[in-house]
């Protein structure tokens, strides 16, 4: 555990809680892609199956349970409790275009051809692109609520911090995981355009809206 890893995890946790609170307090999931949230729930489910097979630490187990629990709570709020406010017409990204190639890739490129290992790889690949339906939705409507941009910023910051964590681990522990690193770089790059808008607009007190 190093400072980048810890702040990365906390940033991830902050993102998840910001989104839950935003939906809960406003009683609305307007502007939120339910498809991205389903993908994240799928990511956590397929990655944390090792909860049943190995114990790493209390911290590790607790965080995994919190992430999974929050992910399903978010999906429940969007598709059940506040379904009436869900903007399905704008959430039109075709997720099969992500899940099918990612599934194929995880079968082809993995560390070991075993069910748990393939599912872990699937979750890593899927996480790297799971935000695309949300970004697509924002580009379609041309705007995002400020609280939604805070959520996205924390989520992007988390993976960027993990990159520093991996550099740290390479230097001080001498090992790296190519699958996690390549997927993590892809994931972080997808946020770059958003980071730019966040810094130049949202942090200056303006609403995030895209030019028509």
């Amino acid at each position: 555990m190093n400072i980048f890893r810890l702040t990365g995890d906390l940033s991830h946790l902050a993102a998840i809680i910001i989104l839950l609170l935003k939906i809960w307090k406003s009683r609305s999931c307007a502007g939120i892609s339910g498809k991205s949230q389903i993908l994240f729930a799928l990511v956590f489910t397929t990655r944390y199956l090792d909860l049943f097979t190995s114990f790493i630490s209390l911290y590790n187990t607790c965080m995994k349970l919190i992430y999974i629990g929050c992910a399903y709570a978010t999906v429940y709020l969007i598709y059940a409790k506040f379904r009436a406010t869900y903007d399905g017409n704008h959430d039109s990204f075709r997720v099969e275009f992500l899940v099918v190639p990612v599934g194929g890739l995880s079968v082809l490129i993995n560390h070991d051809f075993s069910p748990l290992e393939i599912l872990w790889t699937f979750s890593i690949y899927l996480e790297s692109v799971a935000i695309l339906p949300q970004l697509f939705m924002i580009s379609k409507t041309g705007e995002a609520e400020t609280i939604t941009t805070h959520y996205l910023f924390c989520l992007g910051l988390y993976r960027a911090l993990y990159l520093f964590n991996w550099i740290w681990r390479f230097y001080f522990e001498g090992f790296f995981d190519m699958i996690a690193i390549v997927a993590g770089v892809v994931q972080t790059v997808l946020y770059c355009d958003f980071f730019y808008l966040y810094v130049t607009k949202v942090l200056k007190g303006k609403k995030l809206s895209l030019p028509a």
Binding site: H12, S54, I56, M63, W120, W166, R169, D177, A180
Partner: peptide, 10 residues
Amino acid sequence: LVLSGFKDEL
């Protein structure tokens, strides 16, 4: 043997 080196991560 930990096949995926970063299995202790979230």
